[in-house]
Design a binder for these strands. Sequence first.
DNA 1: CGCAATACCGAAAACGCTTTCAGTGGAAAG
DNA 2: CTTTCCACTGAAAGCGTTTTCGGTATTGCG
Lengths: 343, 343
Amino acid sequence: MAQPEARPSRPRAVTLSDVARLAGVSPATASKALNGRSQVRAETRERVIEAAERLAFRPNPMARGLLAGRTGTVGLLTSDLEGRFSIPILMGAEDAFGVGKVAVFLCDARGDAIREQHHVQALLERRVDGLIVVGSRTDPRPSLGRDLAVPVVYAYAPSQDPADISIVQDSVGAGRLAVQHLLACGRTRIAHVSGDPGYLAARERAQGAGEALAGAGLTPVGDTLFGTWSEGWGRAAAGLLLDRHPELDAILCGNDQIARGVVETLRERGRRVPEDVAVMGFDNWEILTSGSRPPLTSVDLNLEEVGRAAARALFSAIEGSPRSGVETRPCRVVIRGSTAPLS
Amino acid sequence: MAQPEARPSRPRAVTLSDVARLAGVSPATASKALNGRSQVRAETRERVIEAAERLAFRPNPMARGLLAGRTGTVGLLTSDLEGRFSIPILMGAEDAFGVGKVAVFLCDARGDAIREQHHVQALLERRVDGLIVVGSRTDPRPSLGRDLAVPVVYAYAPSQDPADISIVQDSVGAGRLAVQHLLACGRTRIAHVSGDPGYLAARERAQGAGEALAGAGLTPVGDTLFGTWSEGWGRAAAGLLLDRHPELDAILCGNDQIARGVVETLRERGRRVPEDVAVMGFDNWEILTSGSRPPLTSVDLNLEEVGRAAARALFSAIEGSPRSGVETRPCRVVIRGSTAPLS
DNA sequence: CGCAATACCGAAAACGCTTTCAGTGGAAAG
DNA sequence: CTTTCCACTGAAAGCGTTTTCGGTATTGCG
């Protein structure tokens, strides 16, 4: 006889009616009992719950969502191929939503605007309840538009449209924090080697660093050196600095890669880190900070917190209380071997 | 008058009935027209399609899934906090599934077995059509069990249960490929510095390397040095090797971090890379390979291909043709400056 | 011109759940 | 003892699709 299934088909899922039948009540009553509605006798509720447990009943989210008009899902749209930024944000969002309450679709647009559009469309077709958009760099990015069917929260990189809500780390504050740490280590001759000046993050960190120095009545050692976000640039810049400003006692680097390069050149040029020169970076990318000799002090962007905040903002927008504007979260310094008080 | 909405409520989604009404047909006919069923006059189909476009109609996936008994979603369960391995696998899976056809829930168990269980439960409650499990290391991992309600594919790390289907990269072959590349560069005195011998990846890569050497009639320079997966170990091991075997002309490293350390020590000890000693690693982690001096040749694990294969395997299991056993995908050598032919 | 076959369309059921509303029985109040 | 009220339960509608099946109009054929 024709048996289309190639193997024993998986058991049909148990439905609310199955539970109701076992408990000897109607589906309506079973629903009320399981959802804590008040109009059920305690003893009945008991029976229904026990039946549900015996059958390992799990309500079908599609049936439920069909009524409620909600799916209990959100989309996380990233452009960051490595997941360097989006994974911590995803984990923060998972925390805030709570496992099992809301599930997250992760889509990677791979830096491609039209692929991003496809993903947005696909997510909307799936009727996600909301969207979190993670930029590939901290510069303001184009808004997805004002009349999407669902609320959108921008994380890591703000939207260009001030009517949108964006949650970002405080880059200016990060620069300030970094310099304050170096000052606390007794350093006063501080240089700054940054990355690509086309990146807002580079400029803002430099700005914050400058403010903190000025606040302490100090002037930076030389101008900020902008270059690229690479170890190679770090090596080159450190050479430059040592030639021009041999007196420096700290180098603040625009990210961890630059810091790696700087540390390497300092070592080769016979400067001890941190005794002679303290070095620190930004991003706190463990793979880079831990392998360095000595391990790198770095400013952590607190991306999990950004993710949590984004999730909360999205949640309240879904509930009907949207916010707007750009909200920032503080960063924090993670101290390792490359900075230490002057003895 | 009582207006519960705090702001202009989002427009109600357009339904098939709206389309049908506009086209002057019944919902049944509209459905058939849009889904390419044959029992619709061409002219009618035309009208329906145009109406659907005018209203920007998108079928509600929950209603559709409710009938079909499928959600069109899969869960990707990872344990790898950084996303280093899971993101490429996710992208491969996205490719294979196709944007819009299947959406992927990404969950990170953060290496915690009970959090993993929670996520599995949550995904099952959502009625995902299947699960891809990405291990945190390549060693076989416990199976999720045989009687889950949906098919499961293990990627990167195989399941311990041979009845499950696992898709992994070919670590032995990777070791072989690496040595073959070094041989092609004319190197014959090849040492191997690996990571933690508790990792299967370390042992398998070493095995493959040994086989390739033996196949060429060569013997390795010294025993494989096992240690940790760190730059520090790479630096130390390179020192050891240079002391014991100054004649070596290539060092194969268990991963890119070790290779970074090895390159650094070689430079400090005055050996030129690649002229005197060729160096290569595994994983092809761009952040590490590109910053090195010279950039590192490395074996890429082809994780996107693993992801694609896992997605295809999952798809065919969902369609009713499950496979089982461990299937491997080849790796590939990415050549950069740290290896070159002996001149 | 009559009949069967065909092409096309729509009513209705179904998926699994929640919610509304009417109905039942018992207890409290008169 | 009758009336009112309350607590509880279940029938039924509805969410937005797809699919089955019966019905009608049209066509082809004898």
